[in-house]
């Protein structure tokens, strides 16, 4: 039994090594693909992994494996104290488009002017389908586009869609998964927040039943408590501008011009920053759910 177990492992190791030697001519060729994969998911950021993908064909094939992004995300969750999380906000204030960067750790706000941020998933919600685009793929590539059927109970009625005000729906990424939130007034005192995740990253079938998009959080937010912090709260002034890229149960909420980090489990909120501008209000605040460190997409 023992001998047999060893033989199986030996056989496996042999075949892996043979496969590796065919493609690469370096001393690292001895390393089987599986171990090279283990090495690359331990890189500190996505930029490093992308650079690895242009080293040689073999390395590229490893970073392009379907399970790469998911396993990479598992490893990047370890905190990196030197690189604080940053949120990027852009909007039209005082008739000018401007961008603010919020540092999550100390609430300091800085202007972002120079290099553009790395791309993140872009997506939009249609009546029954969620359409997403993977910015790491070529725009014309059919595989870059995916649509998912929304859960049955996502919208109460098709005709209600036009009543939706855009800030009440938010698309973004958390732990590398496509995430969607929905805001509704339950009654005059309570805001109802639902958060959905695209759970199955592989084998996505647009017409799959049930929908691959699963409700992960549903919570009532006491508007009175929220209003105590912000001067006044109305439906139009509340939105979820971004999801925490790492902590699954945290979101960022905007009450008027105050940005809070909100914990869905403890229902506690911490003010992160005030998104101020000269006139004190944003006419058309467009918030980009861009986050640092950049999270790769799995869509």
């Amino acid at each position: 039994m023992l001998e047999r177990a060893l033989r199986v492992r030996r056989k496996k190791a042999k075949s892996e090594r043979r496969r590796s030697t065919e493609r690469c001519t370096s001393s690292s060729r001895y390393i089987p693909d599986d171990l090279l994969h283990e090495i690359m998911i331990r890189l500190p950021n996505l930029a490093s992994a992308v650079r690895c993908s242009s080293v040689c064909k073999r390395w590229r094939s490893i970073t392009c494996r379907s399970d790469f992004t998911a396993t990479f995300m598992d490893h990047i969750h370890r905190p990196e104290p030197k690189r604080p999380l940053r949120l990027l906000f852009g909007g039209i204030a005082d008739e000018e488009f401007s961008i603010r960067v919020v540092d999550n750790d100390n609430g300091m706000m800085m202007m972002q002017s120079s290099s553009p941020p790395p791309p993140v998933a872009a997506a939009s919600v249609g009546a029954k389908l969620l359409l997403s685009y993977d910015p790491f793929k070529d725009f014309g590539d059919v595989k870059a586009w995916k649509s998912f059927r929304l859960p049955h109970d996502f919208l109460p009625d098709d005709s209600d869609l036009v009543l939706y005000y855009i800030p009440h729906l938010r698309l973004g990424l958390s732990q590398g998964r496509l995430r969607l939130s929905q805001f509704l007034w339950d009654d005059p005192q309570h805001l109802s927040l639902k958060v959905w995740d695209l759970m199955d990253n592989n084998n996505i079938d647009a017409n799959a039943e049930p929908s691959p998009i699963t409700l992960v959080h549903q919570t009532l937010i006491d508007a009175a408590a929220a209003a105590a912090a912000a001067a006044s709260v109305s439906l139009m002034s509340v939105s979820v501008p971004a999801f925490h890229p790492i902590h699954h149960n945290q979101i960022f909420m905007l009450f008027d011009s105050y940005l809070y980090r909100y914990d869905l489990d403890t229902k506690k909120q911490v003010m992160v920053a005030e998104i101020e501008n000269n006139s004190g209000r944003w006419d058309n605040l467009r918030v980009f759910p861009f986050v640092y460190p950049a999270s790769p997409t799995i869509i």
Binding site: R23, C24, T25, S26, S27, S28, L35, E38, I39, M40, R42, L43, P44, S48, R51, C52, S54, V55, C56, K57, W59
Partner: peptide, 27 residues
């Protein structure tokens, strides 16, 4: 050990990675 190898890739440019691991581009 995988962390150690990853640390040899970390922060390097593509050309530097190739040099470190003695890899020739086959693109």
């Amino acid at each position: 050990l995988t962390e150690k190898v990853a640390s040899m890739i970390r922060g390097k440019k593509v050309e530097e990675i190739r040099e470190t691991f003695k890899i020739k581009s086959d693109f």
